[in-house]
Design a protein around this nucleic acid. Structure first.
Lengths: 218, 218
DNA sequence: CCAGGGTGTTACCACCGGTAACATCGTCGG
DNA sequence: CCGACGATGTTACCGGTGGTAACACCCTGG
């Protein structure tokens, strides 16, 4: 009647081996970890992509729900933005190895486990778009700006969070402040540094000087 | 003496077949396109990653140089930011299929062509970091903020540009404006929409990042 | 003349994702 | 009681992949 518990069991095994061997884990290895052989996996998940998808949906579900909830929190705008940022960072911080395997497929990874996070990110971007379009007065360009900004903010926090998680240069709250400050125009508002003439850099433009080198020869 | 021309020739062939068949192109196919067989490819590039790396370095080199030049342009800050954004967008716009295959490895892609763009992006992020840290007065947090923002801005324009290139919702200049507006704090400065009236009751103390509601629902 | 290095080949390996065919067990309905 | 059925499991296989070994062909140059 219910194939669910078996499925869960298999997913747990897949989870274990993927976290141990990276996303390049073979179907054979996963099957072995589950104490069975390949065809059963294929019966349950169709193909390898199905397995990976099921695995990542399980992992991203919580994060997505948390971000969605944070977006709906009734706070002043800056507080809400910080709350969303903190929620996302807390999410990836709480399961770093899962996050890493979702975002950084090791070399040798067969067939798109690196895109695994993409659907969740797309959903987050859409949530942000909806929130911005529904709550902020942006004039005639409202919809376009909301769409652009949804993607832009998602990509921003993805890249920044990724780097933060790897090198841990500061606390989470500090990171939230830094990102919120960027969104609040601090880059635009800050003064120029006095030394900001143009000599900067040890290598002042190694200068291939060519804009786009077109395809060499035809 | 110079294996360079042969190498270039092989890269051209690889380029052709990859653009035709996607990043999942097999070594056999590439070799066939070049009119030769596999072992020669391996002699020249070591392994598949070596080939892909050489290919993407060739493609990203121009974009990276262009962005670097744009960053060094002696303009007012907003103009410079817009110039950099426009340069990047123009770069990916000028070779959309190349960009796509670098960023969106088709399913079935063997071993990391999706990461191919990563090194170039890291370099761009470092350039931005250097530029910000060297030219903008950000007080004591200067270095940290510059590093965070470098990654954040890179990720932002990557994600936004990716979406823009796929769905083309507006002109390039409009896109540049939208992104620059975001960086200039327009999200922060805009008024609330009238319908977004807050319940205003509870004190604005953000619940500390409601941890994961494991398993969102069913 | 013949040594050496680049260019090229065929043949092969281990492994991967995926499938077909067959065996086993528990549980129902007649 | 028994046969049908469905889930669970197996072995054996397929085509294709990245990667390698071994050998053959020029062409140059001391």
């Amino acid at each position: 009647m219910d194939p669910e518990p078996r499925r869960e069991q298999l997913l747990n095994a897949a989870d274990r081996v993927v976290q141990r061997e990276g996303p390049a884990a073979s179907m054979n290895a996963i099957a072995a970890e589950a104490g069975i052989t390949k065809p059963i996996l294929y019966r349950h998940f169709g193909d390898r992509n199905g397995l990976i998808r099921a695995l990542t949906e399980r992992h991203t579900g919580g994060l997505l729900a948390a971000v969605r909830a944070a977006l709906a929190e009734p706070l002043e705008r800056r507080d809400r933005v910080e709350h969303v940022l903190d929620t996302y960072l807390a999410g990836i911080e709480s399961r770093p190895q899962v996050y890493r395997l979702l975002t950084h497929p090791e070399p040798g990874d067969p067939s798109g486990a690196g895109n695994a996070l993409a659907p969740a990110l797309r959903q987050i971007a859409e949530e942000i778009t909806r929130a911005v379009a529904g709550q902020v007065d942006l004039g005639a360009d409202r919809e376009l700006l909301a769409e652009v900004w949804g993607r832009a903010i998602t990509g921003m926090v993805l890249a920044a969070g990724d780097w933060w998680l790897e090198s841990r240069p500061c606390s989470r709250t500090r990171m939230v402040q830094a990102l919120a400050d960027l969104l609040w125009g601090r880059l635009a508002a800050a003064a120029d540094l006095p030394t900001a003439a143009l000599p900067a850099g040890p290598a002042p433009t190694p200068a291939p000087a060519a804009e786009f080198p077109d395809r060499p020869t035809g």
